[in-house]
Design a binder for these strands. Structure first.
Length: 117
RNA sequence: UAAAGUAGCCGGAUAAUCGCGCUUAGAGAAAUUUAAGUGAGGAAAGUCCGUGCAUCCCAGAACAGACCGCCGGAGAAACUCCGGACGAUGUGAGUCGGUGGAUAGUGCCACAGAAAAGAUGACUGCCGAUGGAUUUUUAUAUCACAGGCGAUGGUGCAACGGUGAGUUAAGAGCUUCACCAGAGAUAUCGAGAGGUAUCUGCUUGGUAAACCCCGGUUGGAUGCAAGAUUGAAUCGAAGGUUAAGGUUGUUCGCCAGCUUCGGAAAAAUCGCUAGAGAUUAGGAGUAAUCCUAAUACCAGAUAGAUGAUUAUCUAAAACAGAACACGGCUUACGGGCUGCUUUAUUUU
RNA sequence: CGGGAUGUAGCGCAGUUUGGUAGCGCACCUCGCUUGGGACGAGGGGGUCGCACGUUCAAAUCGUGUCAUCCCGA
């Protein structure tokens, strides 16, 4: 789990990020990016979403969310996030394809997404 | 030894590294940070029942409505649990069952069938002993007769107790007989549901998960997104729209509501976890459960905490994630362990 | 988390109240009409009524359980 200051919390913030329509996709994970930062005061906030339509069972949805979160955390720790930190907010959306994958697969696709955005 | 039944338990373990929520203590002006403790289930699930709790409505009573339905007990209550009765099922241990009333009344029972319920016997049919008529060799015979009979009709899920004898003109529960099914009465056992025995020819379809009758229970609605406190806001009237509501029963219109756009924007705290509770021990009871004592406080998040990786062991672990709480029910589930019981086989 | 609705032919819907025959439109197939196609006319096929168990002589319909889909409440 990420510390609180890195988490994207408000519904309005989620809406605003989706509205920008800056997105990229790979390996069953989609990344939405928000507006560019005006000042470098706050850290980039991240949200992780797996819809109920992806799978009915909460355990499997939670598992995917945790894997995505953990890979982002490790990248944050190693300071490998690169360009993505210029955005105010990021949202990772998991899909059906990503459900069965293991940690290394998820991590590599998240790394790719962060390079591309 | 094998197979089965039943009751219950476990629900990956250890180590290392990197992380998260909450509580307490410390540091700091604050953001934050340090340490210690603690942190998902047997079903947390489905939301099928029942409670607590909260808000709104409601003078009271009756009816209506809704729900329940063998007996006794437990429980706050329950489409709940325990013990028993009866029925069904299994070789058996056991398992399953919404199990009051069809003689209070109404409805329905397709097709087939004489008939689907009032069999005062309409039809098909059997008989012609008895009485009558006809014929006549006065015996027999015959009958659109009086009348007797309910066996025959094979259709159907179901045909007005069943099977087999005897009796008869033909026949029949005819009560004469044997066996069986049901009903009633009496006796007896039991707290009761009900069991057992004897007697009485008493024998009257099915359906109430059809209406209903009887007995019992019950204020209604909405659900923690309930609701309480604090704070902010409570504007514009530009466009679209009419499911519900008001204005007349209907339509239009209007009010009103919804929605798009613009402006403004902020959420926080409580509810919220000390309980119809948990663990251990003792006692009462066949059991459900209840009583007494001791012990500890044991999730409380809010884009939502229990995770990730590696190594070792095992069999490269199933179903599955708290969101106000509790009691049940139902459904999903890999593998393993224990107690008791039954059946089969082998040995003694 | 709470509340509500619906599952019937390839698609969209009746029938469920009051239990006995599953039907309508479009689509599909065959034939006719036409030089050919469309339209039109005639005929035909296609369904375990989401699934399971029960009540009943008999269940799409009644009862219970279960699965799936959709809608509403910040």
């Amino acid at each position: 789990m990420l510390p609180k200051q890195y988490r994207l919390k408000k519904r309005s913030a989620f809406k605003a990020t989706y509205k920008v329509k800056n997105s990229t996709h790979t390996g069953g994970v989609t990344l939405f990016a928000g507006l560019l930062k005006k000042e470098n005061e706050y850290p980039t906030k991240v949200g992780f979403v797996v819809s109920k339509k992806v799978h009915k069972r909460a355990v499997k949805r939670n598992r995917l969310k945790r894997l995505m979160r953990e890979s982002y955390r490790l990248l944050l720790k190693d300071n490998k996030l690169g360009n993505s930190q210029k955005y105010m907010s990021l949202i990772f959306v998991g899909s059906e394809k990503a459900l069965g994958k293991n940690f290394s697969n998820i991590k590599s696709s998240i790394e790719k997404l962060l390079e591309r955005i």
